[in-house]
Design a protein around this nucleic acid. Structure first.
Lengths: 222, 222, 222, 222
DNA sequence: GATGAATGAGGGTTCATTCAT
DNA sequence: TATGAATGAACCCTCATTCAT
C-alpha cells in the first residue's frame, strides 16, 4: 500500500486508490454498525463498497484488520468530538464535554448503538479501544474536579458512571430521543454525583467531598 | 420428544434422555459462559457433554435454541436468587436484594461476565431475557420506594442505574473482588440515589423527593 | 474418528466409515501419484473418491495430513516388500532384495515415478520418509557385506548408489521396461561395486576390499 | 518488447528496460533457488527486484515463462562451465570436466541444491533442461572414451551414473563439503566405471571393455 | 434414544493477471 | 516503460444439520 511520497503531490491513481480504500472503510463501518462481526462477510462489505472482494485483503490485510481500523476511526472521531476544553468554569466545561459526547452519539446513531455503546469480550478491539477512551475521559473529568482518578474506589465507581451514561444514551437513542441533550447532560451530572458519592461511601476523602459540593453548587435548584 | 404421560412413571429410557438433555444444557452453559456464541461449536458442546453431537439438534432443535434455553435457565436462577422479600423495612429489603444479586454473580462468575453482564444486539436472546429481568427488578425496586416505574424519566435513569451496577460488578469481579459485598451494596444504593436524583432533575415529583429522603435517611453518615 | 473398541467387533457403520477412509486414501494416492501436491486439490481427491469434500478434513484433518498418510502407506508397503531375508548366501539375499524393490516399483509405476523416485525439498514428507527408507536399506546392504554404514565415505557413496538405482529404475520404467528385472539387478550390483570402490578410493579399508571381492566373486563372467 | 534496431545504439529507455529485465531475472533465480515454484509468488520476485509486479508479465509473459528462462540461464552457465576441453589426455579431460561441474555447483550452492540437482515432473522445464544437459554431458563423456552413447544399455546406466554424481554432490554440499573436489572427482570416476561395467554386464562389447581399461589404467593405486 | 459419518453451503484468503494511468 | 490498483477464480477449511443404522 504505497502512500504518496512526502513532498510530491499524490497522483490521480493514488487518489483513486485512497478513494477505494475509503469506500471499503465506509462500507465496513456501515456493516459492522448493523450486524455483529461474525455476521458480516467480506463479500458483504465488498458489495456495499462496490468493489471486488479481493481488494479488502489488498488494502487492509484481512477482515480482522479492517475491523480494527473501523474501530480506530470511530475512536479518533469520538475523542476529537468530546475533547474537554481548557477555558471557562469547571462545571461549564464538564457540561460541554458531556453534551459533545451525546451529540456525537446522536449524529452517528448506528455506530453508537452497535459499536461505541456495546460491551464485548476482553479480546475485542472495540472493547479495548472504547474502554481506553472511557478511561481517559474519566481521567479528564476527575482532573477537572480535582480528583485523583487512580484511587481504586473512584476508579471503580467512575466505571459505573460511564456505564450509566452509555446505557442512558442508548435508551434515549432507541426511544426516539425524548429529551433535549441539555436535559440528558443534567442526568449525566446527577450520575456523576452519585458515583462520587458512592466512592466517598467506601473510601471518604476531603477531595471527594469538595467535588460533590462543586457539583451540588452548580445545581442550586436541588 | 415424547414426554412421560401424566400419571405413568417415566420409563428408564425417558430418564436417560432427560439426563442427556441435562448434560447438554450444562455443557452449553459452560461453553457459552467462556466464549462468544459464534466461537462455540456444536461439537464443543457435545464433547463437553460426552454425547454425540447429533443429539444437540435432536433435543434442542439447533444451536440457537439451545442458546436461548441456556439463557432462560440462567434467567430463572437469577430471578429466583434476587427475588425481593416482603418483610422488614424498605431499605433493608433493598439491601438484601442487591446483596443477593451480587452474591449470585460472584458465585457464577463466568456466567456473570459472559452472559448476564454482557450487552449484545437487540436480536440477541441474552439481551432480551436479561433486559426483561432488569426491567422487572427496577419495577420492584421502584415499588419498594413508592415510585411509579412507568414514569418515562425514571424508567430512563433506572436503566442507567442498572448499567452502573452491572459495570461496577463486572469490574469488581475482574479485579479480584477488592471489596466486601456490603460495600458494593452501598455503592449501588448511591447509584440508585443518583438515578432518582437524575429523574427528579428532568421531571421533579414529590414521590421522587420522598424516595430520595428515604435513601438518604438510611445513610446518616453522609 | 473413533475406532472400534478393542474386543468388540466393528459395527457395520464403522466398517462403512473405514471403507470411506480407504476410498479417500486410495484416491489421494492416485492423485498424488499423477500430479504434484500443489496441483492436486481437495476437491479432486473427494471427486475421485466419490464423497463430499468435507469428509477429507473429517477423516484426515486436512490435505497435508492426508498427504503424509499417503506417503506413510507407500513407505510401509515398500519396506515390507523389500525387506532383506535372513537365509541363504549373502549375494543371493542381496539379489532378492534388489529384485523385490524393483518388482514393487514395477507393480506401482505411478507411485514409483511420482513419489518414491522423486526428490523433493528437505521439508517434504515424501523426502523425509523415503530418505529414511533408503538409509535403512543401505544400512542393511552394508550389514550384509560386513561394512560399517556409518563410515562417512561409505555413507556418501552409498547415497550415490541408491540414486543411481532409482534413476535407472525410473528410466527403465519410463522406457517400457526394456530389460528383465534380473538384468537390472545386475546393473544395481555393478553400481554397488562402483560405490564401494569409490569409498575405497577416498578412504581405503580392508573391509571395503573384502566386500568388493565378495561382489566380484559373485560375478565370475566379468 | 521492441529490441534495439540493429545498427542503431539502444536508447536510454531501452537500456533501462534491459536493466529491469535483468533485475527480475536475477530476483527470480534467487527466489526459485530457495523455495519450490508454487511457493514463490510473483510479488516475491518483484519485491526482490524492487520493481512493480506488473512488469513480470510485461517482460516475461507470466510466471511460468520466467521460470523457464531462469532455468535456461542456469543451463547455459552450467554448460559453459563444464564444457569438455579438447586438449590433453582423455582421463585428464574427464577429470577437468567433472571438477568444473563440481566447482560450478559449489559456487552456486542454492541453485545447485534447488534447481540443478532436483528431480521433478516430466513436464517441469527444469527437468527437461537439465536432463538435456546431462544427456549431452554423457554423450561427450562417452565420446571421450570411444563409446557410442546411443547404445540402449549404456544410455540407461549412464543415467544412473549422472544420478549418482548428482546425489553425491548434493550430500557433499549439504554436509559442509567434507572432501576436496579432487577426491569427489575420483568418486565420480569410480561411479563411471561402475556404470560402464553395468552396461557391459547386460550387453558386453569390446568398446566397453576398452573404456573400462582406460579408466582402470588411470587409477593404478586400486 | 443415540450415534457419528456424511453433506455441502459458506467462509476468508491468496495470487496471477489485467489495464488505466 | 512502469506502476500497482483492481479483478475474481480457485483454494482449503469449518461446521450446523441430516439421517441411516
Amino acid at each position: 500500500m504505497p502512500q504518496s511520497v512526502a513532498g510530491r503531490p499524490p497522483t490521480r491513481r493514488q487518489l483513486a486508490a485512497q478513494e477505494t480504500r475509503r469506500k471499503l472503510l465506509d462500507a465496513a463501518l456501515e456493516n459492522f454498525s448493523r450486524r455483529p462481526y461474525a455476521d458480516v462477510t467480506v463479500a458483504d462489505i465488498a458489495r456495499s463498497a462496490g468493489v471486488a472482494h479481493g481488494l479488502l485483503s489488498h488494502h487492509f490485510n484481512g477482515k480482522e484488520n479492517l475491523y480494527a481500523e473501523v474501530v480506530s476511526v470511530i475512536d479518533r472521531r469520538l475523542r476529537a468530538a468530546a475533547k474537554i476544553g481548557s477555558d471557562g468554569p469547571v462545571v461549564e466545561r464538564l457540561h460541554r464535554h458531556l453534551a459533545a459526547y451525546l451529540r456525537f452519539l446522536a449524529e452517528n446513531e448506528d455506530v453508537a448503538l452497535n459499536l461505541v455503546l456495546r460491551r464485548g469480550e476482553a479480546a475485542d478491539p472495540v472493547w479495548e479501544a472504547f474502554e481506553a477512551m472511557r478511561r481517559e475521559g474519566n481521567r479528564a473529568v476527575c482532573g477537572l474536579l480535582g480528583l485523583d482518578a487512580d484511587t481504586p474506589a473512584l476508579r471503580l465507581t467512575m466505571r459505573g458512571f460511564t456505564a450509566a451514561c452509555d446505557e442512558t444514551a442508548m435508551v434515549w437513542l432507541r426511544s426516539g430521543r425524548p429529551y433535549e441533550i441539555e436535559a440528558l447532560v443534567d442526568v449525566f451530572v446527577a450520575f456523576l454525583a452519585g458515583a462520587i458519592r458512592a466512592a466517598f461511601d467506601i473510601a471518604p476523602t476531603p477531595a471527594l467531598r469538595e467535588a460533590l459540593e462543586v457539583l451540588q453548587a452548580e445545581r442550586p435548584r436541588g
